[in-house]
Simulated assay, not measured.
Amino acid sequence: MGGLLGMIPFSASPVSGGEICDAYRVGLGLGVDNNGGPFLTYFAKTRDGAPADFFPAEAAGLELLRSTGAVAVPEVLAVEPDVLVLRWVDTAEPSDAEAERLGRDLAALHETAAPHYGTAGPLYLGPVPLTTPEPPVDDPAGWPAFHVEHRLLPLLRMAVDGGGIGPGDARDVERLCERIEEVAGAPQRPAVIHGDLWAGNILWTGDRPHLIDPAAQGGHPEADLAFLELSGCPRWDRVIGAYEEVRPVPGRRERAPLHALHHVLIHAALFGGAYGAESGETARCALRAAG
């Protein structure tokens, strides 16, 4: 490494947390870092063999979330086909106050209208590309069919083809897809959602939580809530209590299995094992809740 860059002190250390990408804390010896130390500190993530639009899609998702003014996200500093660089965010233990802030922020995010379900550009959930029909669906009454055709069934086919789900559990997922109109509840206009909001995609800072790794899109807000609860969000009671003070969601508990299924299915498709049986049971729970 020559020239000026070769004269800059540089450090990189791996950080944990992702299942798909390799991630690093990177320090450059210019100026001071976020804590007043001797480095500028960044977060960088890479993925071998990533599609050319993979990291640009994530950067676009972060920008979509940021543009709403409702939630905090790390600043995108650079994006290339093989790397995404963000400003480093220091973390702290979550508090009741910060959990309540997350609830209010998510309620504000979900009040932000999207032009249609899905996105205008590429979109990934983990390593799996998600599709948006052409023309896109903007009618709230069209969400159940959109969700079946462009979210549930593609992942179910992946899980079946890869041996990640058994025939009985796959059939119960299909039964839910056939009856989704009975389960979906009242029509919900397309809203901006994070799209992959499990507990590990929240950075607790001691002040305001930051959201990372989005599959941001026009979608159904209850998807964010269902996956956050399913994944064991810290201080969940505080989060959902503050959320529903701002944005009540009658019937949310009964519909939670429907909205969690997409995220369980992708784990069945990618990892198999117990996730296939969990997918079937999640579908059965959704059907039982519908009566």
Score class of each variant (00 low, 15 high):
A191V: 06
V192G: 05
V192P: 00
V192D: 03
D196A: 10
D196W: 06
L197F: 10
L197V: 13
L197S: 09
A199S: 09
G200A: 09
N201D: 10
N201L: 06
I202M: 06
L203F: 06
L203D: 00
W204V: 09
W204M: 13
T205R: 07
T205P: 02
T205C: 09
T205D: 05
G206Q: 15
G206V: 13
D207C: 12
D207F: 09
D213A: 11
P214D: 07
P214E: 03
P214V: 05
A216K: 04
A216F: 01
G218R: 00
G219V: 01
G219H: 02
H220S: 06
P221N: 09
L228H: 01
L228A: 07
L228D: 00
L230V: 04
L230H: 11
L230Y: 08
L230S: 03
G232N: 05
C233S: 04
R235K: 13
R235F: 10
R235G: 09
W236C: 01
R238P: 00
V239E: 00
G241C: 06
G241P: 03
G241W: 03
A242V: 06
A242P: 00
Y243S: 00
E244A: 04
E244T: 13
V246C: 15
V246A: 12
R247Y: 08
P248F: 11
V249R: 12
V249M: 15
V249G: 00
P250D: 08
P250Y: 15
P250G: 11
G251T: 13
R253G: 15
R253T: 11
E254P: 06
R255Y: 09
A256W: 03
P257M: 10
L258P: 06
L258T: 08
L261T: 09
H263W: 02
H263L: 13
H263T: 04
V264T: 08
L265H: 05
A268W: 06
A268I: 11
L270N: 05
L270P: 04
F271A: 15
G272Q: 08
G273N: 15
A274W: 14
S279L: 12
E281H: 14
A283W: 02
L287T: 10
L287K: 10
A289Y: 03
A289W: 02
A290P: 07
A290G: 12
